[in-house]
Simulated scan of single mutants.
Amino acid sequence: MRVLILSALIVGTAACTWVPIEKGGKAVRVLPAGPVVPGCVGKGEIVVSVKSKVAFYNRNPLRVQEELETLARNEAPSAGANAVQALGRPADGSQRFSAWQCP
């Protein structure tokens, strides 16, 4: 019975988005991979992480990637940036982004 309840809780929470977008993050664009728009000025790197595994359950990789992107967008304004670009794929719930100030 305990295993059934625990499994139901894990599956139920795995679908939830745990990272809300903040006011400042809403104005931050996510740039696609490739060359950065001319005129953008680099503002450094942002490293973010979330739980990719809950107990023995691996969370949905798309949900994890979405949360990492949201965290990067939330952090960008504090770096003086209005855009972020992934520097690679997520690994173990962590991802690096470059921060940019674009026109």
Rank of each mutant, 00 (worst) to 15 (best):
M1R: 10
M1K: 08
R2G: 08
L4C: 12
S7E: 03
S7W: 14
S7N: 11
A8G: 09
I10R: 07
I10L: 15
I10T: 10
V11P: 00
V11D: 01
G12I: 07
T13C: 14
A15G: 14
A15R: 05
V19A: 02
I21R: 05
E22D: 14
E22Y: 11
K23G: 04
K23M: 07
G25T: 03
G25K: 06
G25C: 11
G25Y: 02
A27N: 14
A27I: 06
V28S: 04
V28H: 03
V28L: 05
R29M: 08
R29Y: 03
V30D: 06
V30F: 01
P32K: 00
P32D: 00
P35Y: 01
P35G: 07
P38S: 12
V41C: 06
V41M: 13
E45F: 06
E45Q: 15
I46G: 01
I46Q: 00
V47R: 13
V48P: 09
V50D: 01
S52K: 11
S52D: 15
S52W: 09
V54R: 02
F56E: 07
F56A: 11
N58M: 12
N58C: 08
N60H: 07
L62K: 13
V64P: 09
Q65H: 10
E66M: 13
E66T: 10
E66Q: 12
E66F: 10
E66L: 11
E66G: 14
L68C: 08
L68G: 05
L68P: 10
E69P: 02
E69F: 00
T70G: 11
L71Y: 02
N74K: 08
G80H: 06
N82S: 09
N82V: 10
A83E: 06
A83N: 06
L87S: 03
L87V: 02
G88A: 01
R89E: 15
R89P: 03
P90H: 02
G93P: 02
G93M: 06
R96I: 05
R96M: 11
R96P: 05
F97Q: 04
A99Y: 06
W100T: 03
W100G: 04
Q101H: 13
C102H: 09
C102E: 09
P103V: 05
P103E: 11
